[in-house]
């Protein structure tokens, strides 16, 4: 199966690979996995005082499409509010990367990773507020 140029670009030059401090109250961490392919994805977002995402990092073990999906997503979320990020759907990722149907689940993994990161961040914020 041939990867699209965009997938190859993100695969060969992944953006924002790394780790943020998961104990930082302004950092949300999302971890998801795909048992069928053995993929593991960790996506982290750091929200600034203005409520916008100022940094995002990922680490993914998986196929090229999974790596490209998570790399792209870290670029998409930066500067956005949580509400805007929540509106990102896997379709936005798969369309941008021109993923073939058999790789759509990689973009689902990325969407679920963002959702998990936001959920983690919100539970931290609630814990702080209470």
């Amino acid at each position: 199966m041939a990867y699209s140029d965009k997938v190859l670009d993100h695969y060969e030059n992944p953006r924002n690979v790394g780790v943020l401090d998961k104990d930082d109250p302004s950092v949300g961490t999302g971890m998801v996995g795909a048992p069928a392919c053995g993929d593991v994805m960790r996506l982290q977002i750091k929200v600034g005082d203005d409520g916008r995402i100022e940094d995002a990092k990922f680490k993914t073990y998986g196929c090229g499409s999974a790596i490209a999906s998570s790399s792209l997503v870290t670029e998409m979320v930066k500067g956005k509010t949580l509400e805007e990020v929540e509106a990102i759907k896997n379709r936005d990722i798969s369309d941008e990367l021109a993923l073939p149907p058999v790789k759509i689940h990689c973009s689902v993994l990325a969407e679920d990773a963002i959702a998990a990161a936001i959920a983690d961040l919100k539970s931290k914020q609630q814990a702080k507020a209470s």
């Binding site: 961490t29 971890m31 998801v32 996995g33 795909a34 048992p35 689940h105 689902v108 990773a113």
Partner: peptide
């Protein structure tokens, strides 16, 4: 393939 929730 769409069930990605697992114990962190």
């Amino acid at each position: 393939e769409t069930d990605t929730q697992m114990d962190p």
